[in-house]
Design a protein around this nucleic acid. Structure first.
Lengths: 121, 121, 121, 121
DNA sequence: GTGGTCTAGACCACA
DNA sequence: GTGGTCTAGACCACC
């Protein structure tokens, strides 16, 4: 099947995104314990190594911390969460502009459309 | 790859989306001839029936017309294109609001963020 | 066998160290092409994934850059090399102090011993 | 793990080093009784012959003495300890110079770096 | 042919 | 039981 028809973002990146959004959305809070690698792997039907990678990258970004034998914990302060929120929201907006421009809309038009938006559907 | 992590939208819908966006973007113009089913099937590596279905649905929506032996043609007037554009643009914006709300932003905040948007990254 | 008797630093870290030292020593220069993952894996008798990891970490540290289909290249400017040199040299000196203190030498004594050092053996 | 990445120093030499450092560090004192061969072998998970060899070499160097049926004892006077300390310390410093030169530092630079060393990291 | 990703399975240290 | 590492082998996209 052509790559056009499958979400090609690496799983570990998608997992990272899920966690980031969950944190920003308040589902995960500071000092919460993350599910063990193996458990999450079963839950999502992926290989433990893939989860491991996602967790490692999150750790590298200073969002979680691994406590050797005790599991992994959310380690991000309010400022970090705010930064994360900005980052995610920026990526969403950037994506919107990208797609809207592709169908021939100017930035000005895009802003107006959003500004006038009402949940009509 | 885990099923959880692949786009589940049916391929024919994805194909339709591609055509719609292409039309609105001006890649395909009124009276353009669409590529034959088999050609497209090969190009995208999908089953000809899938392409066939996408075409049929587009026809049902009054966007393309089949000329029996002569192939399929874009049959959509400027008003139709405008409608299509609105439809696509609305879906993009709706998606933005949906995702932004999920990370705890209010509609007002979303509108401000978009309004103040500058391509800084 | 007890862990006491084997160098336990992860292979990928050891590989990174080798490259860093080589760069600082001038063996590898800016824009030099690194050996392909698979080649290096054979050369060192390790798994390609292990080399891959070492390279990835070096990339994350801004020392090398991967050019998709063209291989990996050293991408570090003179300032970066200087920083690297400082970092490595610091680690060596720190290690010396650590070991010397363990056998009961004071920092002052250590400095004197090094200061008076002559290659007599 | 690849052979290339494990410490190749014979285990009995590593054991000797441990004893020497322990003596110099004051962990083992003159006339202390050394643990029996078998006990140490179990503790380190090595072959009793290996421990035996380490002990023999230490005996040959006049550092320990075996009392036939009564076990082995540290037999080294203060002068001997001082000599040992010098020997170990020299090996550490020599190693430092060796590594530092490899990354392009002159002896003068090395001495300055050590002289100016402060535990800042 | 190159890098990037994923899986399955193994072993280790820590406690 | 937890995280960390490594191996062997596979597939993919890119060019």
């Amino acid at each position: 099947m052509s790559k056009l028809f499958s979400e090609n973002a690496p799983i570990y990146l998608q997992l990272m995104e899920i966690f980031k959004v969950s944190i920003v959305a308040g589902v995960f809070k500071k000092d919460d314990r993350l599910p063990p690698v193996r458990e999450l792997a079963v839950q999502y039907g992926v290989n433990p190594n893939t989860v491991q990678r996602a967790y490692s990258e999150l750790e590298r970004e200073g969002i979680v911390e691994s406590e050797r034998t005790a599991g992994r914990y959310i380690r991000i302060d309010d400022e970090g969460i705010a930064r994360l929120k900005k980052e995610i929201s920026d990526s969403y907006i950037a994506k919107l502009f990208e797609r809207m421009r592709k169908i021939g809309l100017t930035d000005q038009q895009i802003k107006e459309l959003v500004s006038d938006w009402k949940e009509e559907n």
